[in-house]
């Protein structure tokens, strides 16, 4: 009986993890993707079920002749994510904290280069409180600049 309880709880937790991943994908599809407008999603979405204070880093290459749209998309409970785009030499070339944490921004480059996209989910205001976990995603779209 004791072992059965353990198995049931374990199975429940595993299942709930998978459900949470799926929920974030549904959220991406239903809520976030439309913010790309005529930009085509670059194949994948980045992020998932995140906790307040979480940091992510995405290594990307932006190509000349293309325009890109960065979309930060989080459930309201987490608030707006802080987004920074950093070039191959470590220089911050875009920081949404300078633009009221806007969650959608377009970028174009004169020549193809490597970049890092850093995001930070805002930390809990009350540090002693339990941190909230919810969906936080970063979408990258592209279209021809011509």
């Amino acid at each position: 009986m004791h072992n059965l309880k353990i198995l049931v709880v374990s199975a429940g937790l595993i299942l709930s993890s998978q459900i949470l991943f799926s929920q974030c994908r549904t959220f991406a599809k239903n809520t976030c993707e439309s913010q790309l407008e005529d930009y085509m999603l670059n194949g994948r979405m980045y992020g998932g079920y995140m906790v307040q204070g979480q940091e992510t880093e995405l290594f990307i290459v932006l190509s000349a002749g293309q325009k890109y749209r960065i979309v930060g998309c989080t459930k309201p409970a987490l608030g707006s994510v802080w987004i920074q785009l950093i070039d191959g030499n470590g220089k911050v070339v875009f920081d949404n904290s300078e633009h009221d944490l806007v969650q959608t921004w377009d970028i174009s480059v004169k020549s193809t280069q490597e970049f890092r996209l850093r995001t930070f989910v805002p930390d809990a205001k009350n540090k002693s409180a339990t941190r909230i976990r919810d969906c936080s995603l970063l979408l990258l779209g592209s279209k021809s600049a011509s």
Binding site: G47, M50, V51
Partner: peptide, 20 residues
């Protein structure tokens, strides 16, 4: 992204898009 500890950084590598 769903299983990391609080405060741990998650790193992703962008993959090429066929359409791009």
């Amino acid at each position: 992204s769903g299983l990391v500890n609080e405060g741990e950084k998650v790193v992703y590598y962008g993959t090429p898009s066929l359409v791009e």
